[in-house]
Amino acid sequence: MAGDYDLDELYANTYTEQDRLAFETQPISEKKFLIAWTLALFLGPIGAQRYYLGLLPTALLKTALFCAGLVLLAVELTSAGLALLGIVGAWTIIDLFLLLSGTMRDRKDHRLDGYTKYGGICAAITVLALVGMVVVAMIVGTSAGVTGG
């Protein structure tokens, strides 16, 4: 059955001129991609980019989960606090990928201004930042294991 299909023909030229025109004629937001990306990268766990884009219900939920995680850590309910902070961390990474793929839009569902210009370089910086965090976490974890901390 698989031999009956020419996969090169099936997947060739899937991004047509009509697709390009449809993308270019979409309304552009007054909200800037670079600002949303910077907020997501540095203040993502509190939902700053969602506040900026006008996505208030999910921004409030994200902030509440982050604060609840911190409170649970403060009252020494470590497992529950770390679980909430883990959820917020995963949500932040998902938000970064949604921004970098052009999927996250403002509350009016308009694409962000500057995405086509800055999306690629911001994606590269994001990958480097995430890899850097993983390397630092591995070094800290290894050091703590060796020193018994």
Rank of each mutant, 00 (worst) to 15 (best):
E30K: 15
E76Y: 15
F97V: 11
A68Q: 00
V140R: 12
Y115G: 06
T38C: 10
D95W: 06
C67F: 14
A90Y: 15
T142D: 11
I139V: 13
G141W: 09
L82S: 12
H110V: 07
L70D: 07
I35D: 06
P57Q: 01
T147R: 11
G120R: 12
L100P: 09
L56A: 00
Y115A: 02
G148S: 00
G81D: 08
I121Q: 09
I28R: 15
T38R: 00
T63C: 02
C122W: 11
G148D: 07
A123E: 07
G86Q: 09
R50I: 00
L70N: 10
T103C: 07
A36Y: 04
T147I: 07
L41D: 03
T25C: 02
L72R: 10
Q26M: 12
V71F: 13
G132N: 01
W37A: 03
A90T: 12
G44L: 01
V88D: 02
L130S: 01
L84G: 00
W37L: 03
T58M: 01
K117V: 11
A129W: 12
A124R: 11
L100Y: 06
L85T: 04
I125G: 00
V127D: 07
F42L: 14
V88H: 03
M138C: 08
V127T: 10
L72W: 06
L112F: 01
G114D: 08
T92D: 06
M133H: 13
A123N: 08
H110F: 10
A59R: 04
G141V: 06
L43Y: 07
P45D: 01
Y118T: 03
I121D: 04
L41Y: 04
S79E: 15
L43V: 07
V71I: 14
G119F: 04
E24W: 11
A123Y: 10
V146Q: 10
Q26I: 02
L43I: 02
S143C: 08
T78E: 11
L39T: 08
L55R: 13
S79P: 05
V131K: 02
A137N: 10
I94C: 07
L56G: 04
L56M: 09
V88C: 00
M104N: 06
I94Y: 15
L96N: 03
G120H: 11
I28C: 08
R105C: 05
